[in-house]
Amino acid sequence: MKNYITKRLLLFFPVVIGVMTFVFFMIHLVPGDPVELMLGENAMDSDRERLRTDLGLNKPIINQYLTFMFNAFKGDLGRSIHSKMPVFTVIAERFPSTIELALCAIFVAVIISIPLGVIAAYKQKSIFDNGSMVISLFGISMPSFWLGPILIIIFSIKFGWLPVSGRGGISYIILPSITLGTALSAILTRMTRSSMLDCLKEEYVSTARAKGLSEKVVIIKHALANAMIPIITIVGLQSGALLSGAIITETIFSWPGIGRLTIQAINTRDYPLLQGCVLIIALSYVTVNLLTDILYAYFDPRIKYE
């Protein structure tokens, strides 16, 4: 176990360095002069020079790189071009909204998919099983940038039940969570079904039945409890991916999270802010994956690093 965690951590740090290196070079790979792109063609020379100095673009590239890495490790990601606030502060203000949305999306996905997957496995090859698998294929195929507007048309415009956009009470988060959670729900339904099918064939399930336990106890306490390990792993791995899905969902519903901030940074050519957003989303994703892997190894001692 210790060995596995050490090796997994040793793999984690080169990835972090690699991601930071890519993010550093983002501003240098822009075709043309990044300062001109950020300030526009009509900017005064003095403003250009000031921004160039602020961003350190007049220093040798190796110095820029080392300064960027050193500052990033300290949590200093520079200042936003437009708001003039530290990038880290701007992101820290928005990040909780994205976490809130991601957690609600996971909740929606879990409450739909686990009962659906369990019943589909229990009634294998029935109409319910086939139906739920077809529905999950629909769910996987339905892009969030279509599902979101369709939900707005139905529930906000047609019936007027839920608000179109923004962040406020519970009613504001329902549609964004469903939009973000649908694809995860479809993946989890299929995963739960296949994991339950494996567990239902195990001898301990036959033993539980032979002992005269009720089907409900056999399914929930014996089969589902064992089927949960891969399901929890998928939830962990996919929850990191939700951060990327949040970019589109937050744009549709004007949800004030890091995803919308990323698009705003692109539209306003605020490169320091964009670099910060990309870095934080990628680092959150690899950290969640690392924690999931470690927890998986903890709960399933058969896992070892090959």
Binding site: L11, P14, F22, V23, I247, L274, V278
Partner: peptide
């Protein structure tokens, strides 16, 4: 494999979004 890990560190279309923000 480490290069693959770095590319995979960007969830979903985040890497594509980052590249598009550079290339236009």
């Amino acid at each position: 494999m480490r290069l693959c890990d770095i590319v995979l560190a960007f969830p979903g279309i985040l890497l594509a979004i980052a590249i598009m923000s550079i290339l236009g």
